[in-house]
Design a protein around this nucleic acid. Structure first.
Lengths: 203, 203
DNA sequence: TTGCGCGGGGAACGATCGTTCTCTATTGTA
DNA sequence: TACAATAGAGAACGATCGTTCCCCGCGCAA
């Protein structure tokens, strides 16, 4: 009676693989077509699992959405960190965020920040989603502050640079062009130069 | 037989008043709770009209959404132009946009840019809505370029300032604070100062 | 071989959506 | 007063959603 061969409680590695498969499928669908427009049945058929398994792994759609956002958060952090790591100077590490954006914007599937989209669509009525999006954005602000501090730049620069990155994502999505990444990078460089000049004026 | 006392084709001024009443109600509902989450029946009861009249004035939900966005576009332009007109110097007229944002962000009902929210929610699947949002943002970019030009500033500043304004709206909405307006204004001032310094270096 | 329990596929359910239709009260007119 | 056309109120309809349930077939233990 103790032999549980399947279900949500056993074979943890297989369940994790299934979870990842479902989350990847749901992420692609949600991001490209919007969350409300994609039903659980389409997630099920795209991921190739049964409805029963789907609901065994995720108690409901809200839980699946949160898993998708966590997945997207990991991808975002990987992309940012890879670009930061590829940069040479501390100043370059700050600007690397905008290189990452420039690359991202040229992807065929780019459709803005998935967190902003989810917030606008599900924010009211789903506080857990709104809160997770807030945490994601706070995390980005914190990382930016870290990079600014490590470059020896004044800390008030961090939220300003984050604003540029945020605006670039939205503008690139709506206007359908990758140019905002370059505009944001140029503005960021100006802000960095100005703070260098200010610091140099009174050492 | 020619006496049409009501319907969509007669009494134009009364129909315009009704249209405005419906659009105002729908705008408040859509903005606060999301477009998909609000049904036509709730718009009908909030606006206090019959379903028949509602569908006589707007052939479908998509048409109502577009009318709401047009209405919101007018409000946005009024707010920006009022702030611009209240500013003294050409430089102040450029920065006035950020004063307007600071005011807006403190409103209780503030929930980000309604156009960005609509784009994220309805962009895929409703090309007419995506296109109108694009036109709205292009209009803002154009107005910003005009203000920059009138202030005698280099034109590449315009998209950078627009990025700051865009990012401030999104960040303020998600983080739930009005601070981004000040950050954006400070960054904008730095960009303006830097371009003045550059221009002054080689007259 | 024979039960038996579990998982997969999909039907089913209740709710809600956008939209249409029906019924009735009313109002203006001859 | 009688008639006709209209507008309001909401029922009704088909579609779709998230979620649950049922039934069948398969694999393992005795």
């Amino acid at each position: 009676m103790a032999t549980r061969t399947g279900g949500a409680g056993a074979a943890p590695e297989a369940n994790e693989a299934l979870r990842a498969q479902i989350v990847r499928a749901a992420d692609a669908l949600y991001y490209s077509r919007g969350i409300t427009a994609v039903g659980m049945d389409e997630v099920r058929s795209t991921a190739g699992v049964s409805l029963k398994r789907l609901y065994a792994l995720f108690p409901g759609k809200e839980s699946l959405i949160l898993a998708v956002l966590r997945h997207r958060h990991g991808i975002w952090e990987q992309g940012v960190e890879a670009a930061v790591a590829a940069a040479g100077s501390p100043r370059g590490r700050v600007l690397a965020v905008f290189d990452f954006l420039a690359e991202w914007f040229t992807e065929e599937s780019f459709r803005g920040c998935g967190f902003v989209n989810a917030f606008g669509e599900m924010g009211p009525g789903f506080p857990s989603i709104a809160q997770y999006v807030r945490e994601h954005k706070e995390g980005f602000q914190a990382r930016m502050a870290e990079l600014v501090r490590e470059a020896g730049l004044p800390e008030q620069l961090a939220p300003q640079l984050a604003l540029l990155a945020e605006g670039a994502q939205t503008t690139a999505a709506i206007l359908g062009t990758a140019e905002p990444a370059e505009h944001a990078r140029a503005a960021a460089e100006t802000l960095l130069d100005a703070s260098d000049a200010t610091a140099g004026a009174r050492p």
